[in-house]
Computed example of a mutant assay.
Amino acid sequence: MLAGALARRAGVLRREDGPTLMRVVLTLTLPPLIFTILARADLDRALLLVPVAGLAVHVALLLIVGGAARAWGLERPRAGALVLATSLGNTGFFGLPLIAAAGGGFSPAAAAIYHTLCTSPLTWTSSVALAGAYGAPAERPRPRAREVARAVLVPPTWALLAGLAVNLAGVELPAAAERPLELLGAATLPLVMIYAGLMLRARGLHRVWGELASVTVVRLGLAAALGYAAAAALGLDGDVLRTVVIMSAMPTAMMALVIGSREGLPADVLAGAVVVTTLLATLTLPALRALM
């Protein structure tokens, strides 16, 4: 992250290069990472419950934060920004590569399934609908089913399906094919961290510190507790339970800013949530891992 920030300051990279960097991750490095994880995974029935746990966390956050925003009497756009920033975690570009690089004690397969079968569909359904309900003018057209399907059926989703197919078919990948995929997948975490440093901007955070404090407590703290409760209630344990907890406690997703800004929600709150939670997650996630 520091390298990305220094590269921007030195003029080596610009903020305008960020979308290109994310397209590289989305199409060239994250799909191989997901494919190799699922192709090698020891598939267990418990993995089927991982998206259910993620959905339970999402719904609980919507109810808690939405109810609190109404009790506080916040105006709808600002309330929508809080709901979106707390309910949508960065499980794909941040959580999955972190879990994959974390070593023992976690389930990369559970992380891949959590993102592709829970967070990704919710991003383009629930989150878009919520942002529109809180901020968009009534006359603005709603996304069509075809557009939602195109947003969900991205390369990481196809990689998950291909990895599951290879695994279930019992196909052993030759080293000549597996090693290049490993190398591409390993580039995901460094590229995502560079992107975070490139895009983060702390200017103006003092104006929305109250909202950011609330988002931080909920997104990095309460969400982890909800993830544990949901996983335990579903009978998950061991590596899968720990993975659900960590994935639940990811910082606010950059897509929350993209979707919310498009629908007229306060960009200062959403951008600040991305910055603050991403920086503080470098402290809270290792602490959470040590606690478990």
Score class of each variant (00 low, 15 high):
Pro266Ala: 09
Gly185Pro: 07
Met250Phe: 03
Ala131Glu: 08
Leu198Asp: 07
Arg289Gly: 14
Trp209Ser: 13
Thr252Arg: 03
Gly18Val: 13
Pro174Arg: 11
Val269Glu: 04
Arg146Val: 15
Gly170Val: 09
Gly238Thr: 12
Gly80His: 12
Val276Trp: 01
Glu211Ala: 15
Leu96Ala: 11
Ala287Arg: 08
Arg70Trp: 00
Pro77Met: 09
Leu283Asp: 13
Met22Thr: 14
Ile64Trp: 01
Ala287Asp: 04
Tyr195Asn: 11
Val240Glu: 10
Val274Gln: 05
Leu96Cys: 05
Leu205Met: 07
Pro97Ser: 00
Leu212Glu: 06
Ala7Trp: 12
Leu265Ala: 00
Ala231Val: 08
Val245Pro: 06
Thr188Tyr: 03
Pro156Glu: 09
His115Ile: 04
Ala187Lys: 05
Ala68Tyr: 00
Pro31His: 08
Thr243Cys: 09
Leu13Met: 10
Met1Val: 13
Ala253Glu: 03
Pro190Tyr: 08
Val215Ser: 04
Pro155Ile: 03
Ala187Ile: 08
Asp44Trp: 09
Ile99Cys: 04
Asn90Met: 08
Ala102Glu: 08
Ala202Pro: 10
Leu212Met: 03
Val50Gln: 00
Ala177Met: 13
Arg70Asp: 01
Ala85Ser: 15
Arg289Ser: 15
Asp239Tyr: 03
Ala145His: 04
Arg45Asp: 15
Ala271Pro: 05
Pro266Ser: 03
Val258Leu: 15
Met254Phe: 07
Thr188Asp: 07
Val269Leu: 04
Pro141Cys: 03
Gly105Ala: 11
Thr216Val: 10
Leu38Lys: 01
Ala175Pro: 01
His206Gly: 06
Val166Leu: 11
Gly66Arg: 06
Gly54Thr: 02
Thr116Val: 14
Thr36His: 02
Ala232Asn: 01
Gly170Pro: 07
Leu26Ala: 15
Val171Gln: 01
Val217Met: 09
Leu82Phe: 06
Glu147Gln: 13
Glu182Tyr: 12
Val192Pro: 00
Gly135Met: 08
Tyr134His: 08
Gly227Glu: 07
Ala109Asp: 09
Val59Pro: 03
Val245Cys: 02
Ala271Lys: 11
Thr188Val: 10
Thr119Asp: 04
Thr36Phe: 00
Met22Lys: 12
Gly105Thr: 13
Leu48Asn: 00
Ala71Leu: 15
Ser107Asn: 10
Val171Arg: 04
Pro121Thr: 12
Pro286Cys: 03
Pro97Ala: 02
Ala149Arg: 10
Arg144Ala: 11
Ala112Tyr: 12
